[in-house]
Computed example of a mutant assay.
Amino acid sequence: MSSTQKHLLMTLATYLLWTVSLLYGVRPSGSKDAELEPEFAEPIPNVTVSIGRDVKLACVVENLGSYRIAWIHTDRYTLLTLQNRVITRNPRFSIAHNGHRTWTLHITEVEERENGEYMCQINTSPMKSQSGFINVVVPPRIDEGNTSTDMEVKENEEVTLKCVATGSPEPTITWRREDNQPISIGSKKVPSVTGPYLVILKVTRHHMGAYLCIASNGVQPSVSKRILLGVLFHPAISIPNHVVGAAIGSDVILDCQLESHPKSVAYWIRGKDVFIVISNEKYEAKEIAKGTYKTQLSLQIRDLEPDDFGTYYCSAKNSLGEAEGIIKLYGE
């Protein structure tokens, strides 16, 4: 507020105070026979309060006599109380005094709009006043309408996650991975990223997972939102052992490591034409999840016979493509 605006406000406030004083039958002060002029005994302390709580501001005056006290919300140009009367129509405001020395303004269930400067005024001539501030703080809240939701993008594309939060003071946004793994940004790996945007220029399967957008402003509680990032890519198969030896009559397990998203349909082929799609007394196929996009594929072959030796194909297919790995099984 500029000095000119404050001067105009003080003039208006003084006029309002004198006018209301007259309406209530109060003699304007400043006459020659007026008693000792009042003085403020101590400053009004500034108060920080969380939204929804109750708050008090105390104005302490010596020698008030027949002078009158008023409370004014300076920022809203609103006369709140005059002496022991509440002028504002807001039922959450009240006034109390202790022997005409301490005049306490009460606000219950304070709202954010009640943030600002409050003036305690005495109708002397010239008017005397002092001010205190109520700082209404608001815990953070995620703005769901402007914050990213779960998404899926193709590998090597650019992705931007957005998080917007409101609160007072303005919240700080921090991004973390839910699994506490570092976030890969270009060639760097960082534990967290600060700011409303998390930008990954070239997303890979290693970026896949749940991200937490955490909003905090020093007012409890902090809040967070979980955003699941999926990265779409065609299947990739790696083989720990391309050649496996086993004796006739024994059991053997063949292993493949599969990476894919979305999830692939996986199957085994013996030779080029025998599909192993179900488990039975001879074969047992298993899929064991090893992470967000990793799966271990295994094929157990029981009671090996000479006809079981040969080439086995570990295959997988999803909507983006297919992959195949080869294992040769021989007799020892």
Rank of each mutant, 00 (worst) to 15 (best):
F93N: 04
H73W: 13
E170V: 12
C120E: 00
K154E: 10
R92V: 12
L161S: 02
A165G: 03
I87F: 05
V86Q: 08
S168F: 15
C163P: 07
L79R: 06
P126W: 00
I107W: 07
Y77N: 14
S129C: 03
T108A: 11
V110M: 04
I134C: 03
T172K: 06
N123P: 06
I95E: 03
L82V: 00
I69Y: 01
S129F: 14
G132D: 02
I69W: 01
T147Y: 05
V159T: 08
E112K: 10
T81H: 06
I134W: 03
I122P: 00
G167W: 05
S131W: 03
M119K: 07
V153R: 03
T102M: 13
S125T: 13
E157W: 06
T104S: 10
T149M: 08
T78W: 10
P169G: 07
D150A: 12
N98Y: 13
N90W: 05
H73E: 12
R101K: 15
E144Q: 15
V159I: 12
I95V: 14
D75C: 06
S148D: 02
R92F: 06
V137Q: 04
E152H: 08
V136I: 03
R92I: 12
Q121Y: 10
S94L: 10
E152F: 09
I122N: 01
A96C: 12
M127Y: 11
G116D: 01
N123L: 04
E114P: 01
S129E: 06
H73K: 12
V153W: 01
N146L: 08
R141E: 13
M151N: 07
S129G: 00
L80K: 04
R141L: 10
R76D: 11
E117F: 08
N115Q: 07
H97K: 07
H97W: 05
Y77H: 14
L105F: 06
T172C: 02
I72C: 03
D75R: 03
I95F: 08
L161W: 00
D150H: 11
H100N: 15
D143P: 01
V137D: 02
E117T: 15
T160F: 09
R101A: 12
R141T: 10
C163F: 09
N84R: 10
I134R: 01
P140F: 00
N123Q: 07
I122A: 01
Q83P: 03
A96Q: 13
E117V: 15
E152L: 08
W71C: 10
K128Y: 08
G99P: 05
R76M: 13
Q130H: 02
